[in-house]
Simulated assay, not measured.
Amino acid sequence: MSDVGPLLRHWRTARRLSQLALAAEAAVSVRHLCFLETGRSSPSRAMVLRLAEVLDVPLRERNALLLAAGFAPVYRESDLDAPELASVRGALDAILAQQEPFPALVMDRDWDIRYANAGARRFFAFLQGGRTATPPGPPNVLRRMFHPDGVRRHVTNWEEVAEALVRRARREAIGGVTDERARRVLDEVLAYPGVPASLASVDAGAPLLPVVPVRYARAGREFDYFSTVTTLGTPQDVTLQELRIECFFPADDATRSHARHLAASAAAPAASA
């Protein structure tokens, strides 16, 4: 018997759809869908892909559905350094460069930072202020925000930002069943010293605020940013679908001025050399 039935039911539940609603969207009978979920019928490859499309299942999990139904995966997972992704890397470089002098970065599904523009490197180096202690592991947005050796001490509205990040991380993880890495990172950062226990019970389903500002302060300067998160449109590669491009925008003139001052200060030594 196929193992795909429980996975289909899992995704339907995660998307908060009834069998009737899913059947209508996928143009199949409720009876047939019920048989698929209970294992009384086995889906065709086309049916698995159709249901996955309606349920908006991530590509990584679509491969898992296909494997559970006895079919080979159809979506590849490329290395970002692969030659065939050169055009995508070029597009990412262009987006990051366009954001200067304000920070921008590219992260993967585990919140690891894969690329960052000069604005981001300048800004976070300024916040670190020469400190050599850093959060454990590779550069990671969640670790950087939650760890005592990260930027947490410079975020003046840290609890508001932390709650929004936890909610976002949990929302993005809803439904995923084949990879626990992102969840492990979230569990790790929630256990850091000084992190309120109440964050562990943040409801992922609660409405998100339109914009969550992040306010930083260090050395007499204040930075007030908000961010936008962009994904690549209609990717057919697991790696590309899981990328997130986060660009930080100044919320006031002071932040705009401070960012330009940091950029000018960094350029001055290079010019004099």
Rank of each mutant, 00 (worst) to 15 (best):
R167W: 07
Y115A: 13
P136L: 00
E84H: 05
H154S: 12
H154A: 13
E160W: 14
V161G: 14
A97M: 08
I113F: 02
A91P: 03
Q99I: 01
G90I: 06
I174R: 09
I113P: 01
R76M: 02
A120L: 04
V155D: 15
A69H: 11
L142Q: 08
D81M: 08
G70P: 12
R76W: 02
A118I: 03
M107K: 08
R167K: 12
L127K: 12
W111A: 12
N140K: 09
F126A: 13
E172C: 03
V151M: 15
R89V: 04
G176L: 08
R89A: 03
V106D: 02
P148E: 10
H147S: 02
I174A: 02
F71Q: 09
P135I: 00
P101G: 00
P73Q: 07
Q99F: 00
F71S: 11
P101L: 00
I95A: 01
V155I: 15
D93H: 14
R168K: 13
R152S: 14
E100G: 01
A133G: 03
E84L: 02
R153P: 01
N140C: 14
R121D: 06
D108H: 08
I174W: 03
G137K: 02
A94H: 09
R170H: 02
D81I: 05
N157A: 14
R183K: 08
P103D: 04
R168L: 13
A182Y: 04
R181G: 01
A94Y: 06
W158K: 11
R76A: 07
R153G: 06
E159M: 14
R168D: 13
A94P: 06
D112N: 15
V88D: 06
T178G: 11
V74E: 13
V106Q: 00
Q98P: 06
D110H: 13
V155S: 14
A182T: 05
A164D: 15
L127P: 14
R171T: 08
R109W: 11
D79W: 04
A104I: 03
P135M: 05
R114G: 04
M145I: 14
A97D: 14
W158Q: 11
R89P: 01
L80E: 04
A118D: 10
P83A: 12
P103M: 07
V141R: 06
T156E: 11
D179F: 05
T178F: 10
I174L: 07
F102V: 01
G176A: 02
D108M: 06
E84N: 05
V155R: 11
W111C: 10
D112E: 14
A94C: 05
R109G: 12
H154W: 15
E84V: 01
V161D: 14
N157G: 13
E172G: 04
E100R: 03
W111I: 06
V155K: 12
L96T: 09
H147A: 05
N140D: 14
A182R: 10
W158I: 10
P83V: 11
E84G: 02
